[in-house]
């Protein structure tokens, strides 16, 4: 199993701190082809619980994982409660040396993604095989995060009428949708069926047909399929890239 070494861990932690403190800091970073996955969805949709399920699947394939968890700061007093890391805790992940987790506060920048963000992702890529980025919200944030990630996942709570999905600000940008089938949502399966009809028909500009999955992040059911879907998208974009004429 691949590891992130002690020095790499310290360096990554330190540099992320620097990028946040000094957003204008420049650093030459060799771009690497590490896969970047974005996970979005409204607060409470189950994003971090889902990530907590995805990480072990990547780790089992020997991939090193960096997870960046973004939460808003209080605009008035600057504080931030960063609680998502706790949702990624488990006996197997707590001390996993192939995993690096960083919680980021937006520090009053308005949108979830700050200037320093692309640099933080670029640097994280150097130490890992997959970078997972979690951001709250929908709409504007999704458009912003789209630029930084290869695969965008949106977690949806099966609330309300699925026909209103688009009105509810569901992403136009996402490649994969995960309907979180929690037990306290009674309508999970029904919602999933119609979400599949509404969203699953849509095609993105690059020709990717959107995928919709039903999964329960709490119990882990349906996660294997989500992971398969992620890898299908990975292959899809790799194929696209190799097909591109050299510039």
């Amino acid at each position: 199993m691949k590891k992130i070494g002690i020095l790499e861990r310290q360096a990554l932690a330190y540099i992320i701190g620097c990028f946040q403190k000094y957003p204008t800091m420049e650093m030459h970073i060799d771009s690497s082809d590490t896969w970047v996955i974005g996970v979005t969805g409204v607060t409470g949709a189950g994003k971090s619980t889902l990530i907590g399920r995805l990480i072990p699947s990547f780790r089992k394939k020997g991939m090193r994982v960096v997870a960046l968890l973004i939460d808003p700061s209080s605009k008035k007093r600057g504080w931030a409660i960063l609680g998502d890391r706790r949702n990624l805790r488990s006996d197997e992940l707590d001390c996993d040396k192939g995993l690096f987790i960083r919680s980021l506060a937006t520090r009053g920048e308005g949108f979830a993604l700050t200037d320093s963000f692309s640099k933080i992702i670029a640097y994280s890529k150097l130490f890992s095989d997959v970078v997972i980025v979690e951001t709250a919200g929908a709409g504007q944030t999704d458009v912003e995060i789209r630029e930084h990630v290869d695969t965008l996942v949106q977690v949806i709570e099966p609330l309300g009428d699925s026909l209103n999905l688009e009105k509810a600000g569901q992403s136009e940008e996402a490649n994969i949708f995960v309907v979180n089938d929690r037990e306290d949502f009674r309508s999970g399966k029904k919602f999933f069926a119609s979400a599949k009809l509404v969203l699953g028909e849509q095609c993105l500009d690059d020709g990717w047909r959107k995928k919709v999955y039903l999964a329960n992040a709490e119990t882990g059911s349906g996660i294997t399929e989500v992971v398969e879907g992620l890898f299908i998208h990975k292959k899809f974009i790799e194929k696209k890239q190799t097909a591109k004429p050299a510039t």
Binding site: W79, R85, R89, R102
Partner: peptide, 27 residues
């Protein structure tokens, strides 16, 4: 929170190693 800190809430039932790893990663 009142003093404007960014609080990373790691939660209950942690081992010293888990705390140390998280603290270093979180800077």
């Amino acid at each position: 929170q009142a003093m404007g800190a960014e609080v990373i809430h790691l939660g209950f039932r942690t081992t010293p190693e888990a705390v140390a790893k998280a603290a270093v990663e979180e800077g």
